[in-house]
Computed example of a mutant assay.
Amino acid sequence: MKLIRSALHAIRTGRFERSMSALTAAGAAITTAEIYLSHDGASFGNKMMYWPIVVVPTAIPAGVAGFFSRRAARTVLPAASILIVVNGIQGAYLHVRGIRQRPGGLTKYNMESGPPAFAPLLASLVGGMGLLAALLRRETLPGEGN
């Protein structure tokens, strides 16, 4: 119970840098796997489909480093996170372009059966978590001194 109270207090006071760094690393791993499976299902038909497979996983070591190092949380993690956000915006543009190129253009049917228009923006949220981690104050873990 004390651990939960401590965690809630840290969140309320904006001391969530370590946890958000770790969540960014975990989110990047899961998101990369999902992107790989989706793009592999489309046979990597466009060479640009490899970019998120290269860019998103950079948040895994950056997030782990941010968990252990205040300096990494303020330098390496935001750098990787910005790349992910930019790549997600680029991916959303490419997905919408892919939908528009289908016969009939931008229709409900093409939105449902074509590339997922908003999925790359979900990947951008992983980058957003990393950027948020860099802005938050660092929490102390149980057993650490202040």
Rank of each mutant, 00 (worst) to 15 (best):
R100C: 11
V54L: 01
A33N: 08
S6I: 09
T107L: 03
R74V: 10
P61A: 13
W51H: 12
S124C: 05
I82A: 08
R18C: 05
G66M: 01
M20H: 07
P57D: 02
S124E: 02
G66F: 05
T58W: 02
R100F: 01
W51E: 15
A33S: 13
G91H: 02
A33V: 10
T58M: 14
A62G: 05
A62K: 05
L131F: 03
M111C: 13
V85Q: 04
G63N: 03
T32E: 05
L23Q: 09
R12I: 06
S38L: 15
G27K: 08
S113N: 15
V56H: 04
V96M: 11
E17N: 15
A22Y: 02
N46T: 11
L83H: 11
A29M: 14
G66R: 01
A72P: 04
L131K: 10
K47H: 13
G27H: 02
Q101M: 13
A80N: 02
R74Y: 04
L125D: 03
S81D: 01
I53W: 00
Q101D: 13
F68A: 13
G14N: 07
T13P: 09
V64A: 05
P120L: 05
G98I: 04
S21V: 09
R70V: 10
A123Y: 03
S19C: 12
R70D: 11
L131R: 07
T32G: 07
P103F: 00
G127M: 01
A134D: 04
A79P: 14
E17C: 15
A28R: 07
A92R: 05
Y93Q: 11
V85L: 06
L8P: 06
A42W: 15
L132T: 06
R97W: 10
I11D: 02
L3H: 15
S6V: 10
F16M: 08
